[in-house]
Design a protein around this nucleic acid. Structure first.
Length: 462
DNA sequence: CGCAATGATTGTTA
DNA sequence: TAACAATCATTGCG
């Protein structure tokens, strides 16, 4: 087989190249014998050469030309051709009729829509990236993680470019038309020698177009797949988890610990928190879900944090109260320990970090029991020890704890240091023995931790 | 690099 | 259907 192919190729080479010796040599044995043999071989090569020349050229150009000419000039030719065409048409139609219909193709439409939505097939640059950003935002991705977005966009642009360059090849202006005209020319050429009706040419063009559009569809499909993979890789929030900003965590924690008895923010509260933290509502829900479960699992671990945030809210509240007091009663100038004077610049929420730790130390320092891995029961019993100030603590414990903190802060500010018992415990007062929170006792409609402290609880601390 | 923290997802439950 | 519980996957720190 191999040998034969080589021979054929060699012969072809002879015919095409005219007088290539290669062909002759190809038939020779690998190693020539003697001079006498050589002459004979040469003759054979010549003969072969002549034969090939005759078949390929002489016959084609002379003989065939004559015949063709004869046929073309035959008076019956047009009639014969038309009849043949008609027959062909009929059989062709019956054969191809089934696959003739050209549906709108919902698949293609879907792909187009998808590509448009992903910003791949849309208008250039601006629109594309905007659409990509929109798609990214719509996919549930948190928000403005510019780094991964730019990464995503650059990858998307790559896909986009490949898609467009590929598409251009097959688009109307490109190879499709070129190929079509080529085929049409070929067919027209052939129509002189064999019966080809214009309709048939038309149909052929249709077939070509369909082929090209199917290629286009494949291109679109694979582009869609690429985009999908890209999206799943880059926009899967789980893969690209980002920690919330410190501020956001602060806000969430403040809410959590100031509503510790019932840490279930309402829908509105969630929305508000989401807005404040510039995260989504579902992220807020996630956060609270995680927080609740993790807090409950290991209360001891969170105790310090609880104290810190309780103190923080207390500071905030105290600030508000102090401001109110200062505004209403301009007397009572400087209290003995003016280090905790409620000055605006000193108790600015964010810059109060050192103050907060100070307060925390104040609270935690006096009793090491804060860091005990206590259970909810423990806290409840401790709470009961406090006596009257927690009597009937059925009302929103969150508010109460806050007020309580506030009271302590104020009393300390005023120089009273008697109240540092276990009652500054910022414990899951609402946590029942089962480890679950009580039923919502306070409507968690309050969003900011600076809820009016004075209006809630009236007790007699001093 | 190991590990704890943490945001998200998934499956279950009331 | 929201909350819970378990788990995954990533981040960030020592």
């Amino acid at each position: 087989m191999d040998e034969q192919a080589r021979i054929m190729q060699a012969l072809g080479g002879v015919s095409l190249a005219g007088h290539s010796v290669q062909g002759g040599m190809g038939l020779q044995p690998p190693h020539g014998h003697d001079g006498t043999d050589d002459g004979r071989k040469q003759d054979i090569g010549d003969i072969l050469h002549q034969i090939m020349t005759i078949t390929d050229q002489s016959l084609d150009e002379a003989q065939a030309k004559n015949r063709k000419h004869g046929l073309n000039c035959h008076r019956m030719k047009p009639a014969l051709f038309s009849v043949l065409c008609e027959i062909k048409e009929k059989t062709g139609l019956s054969i191809r009729g089934s696959q003739e219909e050209d549906p709108p193709d919902p698949q293609l439409m879907r792909l187009d829509n998808m590509l448009l939505a992903e910003g791949v097939s849309g208008p250039e640059k601006g629109g594309g990236s905007a659409a990509a950003a929109a798609a990214a935002a719509a996919s549930g991705g948190a928000s403005d993680n510019s780094i991964e977005h730019s990464d995503y966009r650059s990858k998307l642009t790559q896909i986009r470019q490949i898609y467009h360059t590929e598409l251009e090849k097959y688009e109307q202006v490109g190879a499709c038309n070129e190929f079509t005209t080529h085929v049409m020319n070929l067919l027209r050429e052939q129509s002189r020698t064999r019966p080809i009706s214009p309709k048939e040419i038309e149909r052929m063009v249709g077939i070509i177009h369909r082929k090209f559009s199917s290629i286009q569809m494949q291109l679109k499909q694979s582009t869609c797949e690429a985009v999908m993979i890209l999206r799943s890789r880059f926009l899967d929030a789980r893969r690209k988890r980002r920690n919330f900003s410190k501020q956001a965590t602060e806000i969430l924690n403040e809410y959590f610990y100031s509503h510790l008895s019932n840490p279930y923010p309402s829908e509105e509260a969630k929305e508000e928190l989401a807005k404040k933290c510039s995260i989504t509502v579902s992220q807020v829900s996630n956060w609270f879900g995680n927080k609740r479960i993790r807090y409950k699992k290991n209360i001891g671990k969170f105790q310090e944090e609880a104290n810190l945030y309780a103190a923080k809210t207390a500071v905030t509240a105290a600030h508000a109260v102090a401001a109110a007091v200062q505004n209403s009663q301009t007397n009572s100038p400087t209290t003995p320990n003016s280090g905790f004077q409620m000055k605006d610049e000193e108790f600015q929420l964010d810059s109060a970090e050192s103050k907060n730790t100070l307060l925390t130390n104040m609270f935690t320092g006096s009793s090491g029991s804060f860091n005990l891995p206590n259970s909810g029961d423990m806290f409840l019993s401790m709470q009961s020890l406090n006596g009257d100030s927690y009597q009937g603590a059925q009302v929103g414990v969150n508010v109460q704890s806050q007020v309580d903190t506030l009271r302590h802060v104020i009393s300390q500010t005023a120089g009273y240091s008697e109240a540092l018992g276990g009652n500054t415990m910022y414990s899951p007062n609402g946590l029942n023995a089962n480890g679950g929170w009580h039923d919502a006792m306070t409507p968690s409609s309050v969003i900011s931790p600076t809820e009016g402290p004075g209006s809630v609880h009236s007790d007699t601390s001093n």
